[in-house]
Design a binder for these strands. Structure first.
Lengths: 113, 113
DNA sequence: CACCATACCTTGGGGTCCGAGGTATAGGGT
DNA sequence: ACCCTATACCTCGGACCCCAAGGTATGGTG
């Protein structure tokens, strides 16, 4: 049973992966490092997280992949499909709603103390 | 094995419950509705979520409980311990870090200025 | 007296995340 | 030559989180 919309299971890795792939074509190993880099290592989902998400998204038609060999290395590049774009905007929306709700209870203050 | 700190498993219900109990003594059933109320029904963790969290927190010494009968109804009121307060500030911090990291990847859109 | 709201609780299952491990190639150091 | 690291793919087992559904009991209302 596909998970509900208002789920508390964040699905953050999926969100980030979709976003990265919206901006540019990338391959799995690259994504793992990109997330770590762009979040200043605050988030470091490993390969054990990223690859399964990638496979799941492709299976659902949210991503398309193609093999490419660079410097004798075989890489699997992923790109966003229309369905994936929809899923991204949707997930992104959910994240904002969740965050707003949390802030509402926590005192609704902007961070940065 | 107790979960890591930088976990992506949000633990939002726990965070909200701790926050509510920091502000005032409450009982389970009340908490369920308070979350729904204060988030304009954006979040509605049911009793199946709240009670187990409550029990877990108490077991860990983050909460203290006392039975009280009001209008012939038996309620279990919870309050925050020092340990719970620590856990709250900690979890709250984690949430902000997580949110910042997500925003960093998503484009760092300013929320409500 | 039936029904709903209150108030507590547990169980079963699905989803998410993670560390650990497995395979293979390219390149640098020794 | 050889090893070690980085690159690049992958899967598995388990831990944890969340949820819907159901179970028990009492008070108030129609």
């Amino acid at each position: 049973m596909a998970q509900q919309d208002s789920s508390l299971s964040a699905g953050v890795p999926e969100l980030l992966i979709l976003k990265l792939l919206q901006d540019q074509e990338m391959y799995g190993y690259e994504i793992v490092q990109a997330i770590s880099d762009r979040t200043a290592a605050a988030l470091t989902p490993g390969e054990g997280v990223v690859y399964p998400v990638l496979h799941g998204l492709e299976k659902d038609g949210a991503l398309k992949s193609r093999r490419k060999t660079v410097n004798g290395r075989s890489r699997v590049y992923y790109t966003l499909t229309a369905k994936g774009a929809k899923r991204l905007s949707h997930l992104s929306q959910s994240w904002n709603t969740l965050n707003d709700a949390v802030q509402a209870v926590m005192g609704a203050r902007a961070h940065a103390v």
